[in-house]
Design a protein around this nucleic acid. Structure first.
Lengths: 215, 215
DNA sequence: TAGATTGTTAATCGATTAACAATC
DNA sequence: TAGATTGTTAATCGATTAACAATC
């Protein structure tokens, strides 16, 4: 079996959310150009993504929304529930913890960790904060597979390695440092980098060049 | 003048941070393979990025760190200071506000907005929260060019449009909805999408396929 | 000189888009 | 049938990597 392209997987997540909204509104089926419009992408891209999942629509009625949601679930979600840990309960870690418990997905926040003894034992979004020393033990006991890294930069690499050793299969790295752990899936989302990127393209001179290209 | 590739700009931001750390340690110059190692990328990519900036190193001593930092600053930063607004002070917005004031960059958080009257007038990270009704007035008065969007999904599109009308040139959209505003630079960073993406590649079966590919 | 390094072009890879056949 | 839609291949675009000339 081949893996789906990264960008396609990202869009599947987005398709599912807007499709669920359509379903809740009582819509049963949707054309590729309608789904495309909701995400501001092209209909071809929608059809190609759906093709890559191995799904088929009907020629005159488009795609059955319920089937599509179900299929995306089979592809993205695990058969069992996938569990998440947040490592580092600062401002960002805490905000993400709240965000995850508010927004229901199949992904379940199962543990948070910190090395500050003032935080250990406290409850964050209904989850007790463990001492980071017990990382491996808890991750293995709870069978956690995904780690969200929101520790201070100086600790990022070391803890990423520990996460891998504990059996974590994917990490979202919100720290500003590049982490060097091979063999697992790592996604880098650094706030400062994204901000400086936007700043570059939003410099008045550059924004003018961008706008010309759009016409 | 041509714009730099998006990925190159992202890396410039990362180069600058690690270079600053090197400079603080008293290092004066650096080889492409050393800089590459710090970010876990290839030396060729480093040299190509530097070439795209129009900079040159010396053949036997590599790149002068101070010059490089200065040049990256000229490219990313505005001549004047660029100002930022955060729109929507929930958990995430507040965490980002703290994060921005803690981590010094040339980018200055100059206003935060909310439509909840309990929040309007309160101070967040030293910045007073304005009523979102005054968005246009404040943005123009303060000459803000970058907006961070952390409002509830239902308001995202509408407020993005208002930001554009107020003269904002770039938006970082942390809401889970795709926003439809043309002519300005928009960057999408949705927490659920990134999480579901990592979940897909961290499914045990898929992780195994990934790991094989690495060998 | 030999070895190490930079600078740059050409090749490759991944993702998007254009083109179009198939069909209801 | 004509028009609208899906499914899919080929072309294009953007980014990375390989190859290598230049030079200290």
């Amino acid at each position: 079996m081949k893996l789906l392209p990264e960008r396609t997987v990202e869009r599947l997540s987005q398709y599912r959310r807007v499709l669920q909204r359509q379903l809740d509104n009582g819509t049963e089926s949707i054309y590729s150009h309608e789904l495309a419009k909701l995400l501001h992408i092209t209909p071809v891209q929608v059809r190609r993504d759906i093709m890559l999942m191995g799904h088929s629509g009907t020629l005159r009625r488009g795609y059955n929304i319920e089937n599509l949601i179900h299929l995306i679930g089979q592809i993205i979600d695990c058969s069992g529930q996938q569990k998440i840990a947040i490592i580092g309960i600062g401002n960002l870690g805490e905000a993400l913890a709240n965000y995850l418990t508010e927004n229901k997905t199949k992904l379940q926040l199962s543990a948070v960790f910190d090395n500050n003894m003032d935080k250990v034992g406290k409850i964050y979004s209904g989850i007790v904060c463990y001492n980071i020393k017990n990382l491996k033990k808890i991750v293995q006991r709870e069978n956690i597979t995904i780690g969200i890294l929101t520790v201070p930069p100086s600790q990022a690499n070391e803890i990423a390695l520990k996460l891998k050793e504990a059996g974590i299969l994917g990490i979202i790295n919100y720290t500003p440092v590049s982490i060097n752990v091979k063999g697992i899936f790592i996604e880098q989302y650094d706030v400062i980098t994204s901000l400086e990127k936007v700043a570059y393209f939003a410099k008045p001179k550059n924004a003018a060049i961008l706008q010309e290209g759009c016409k």
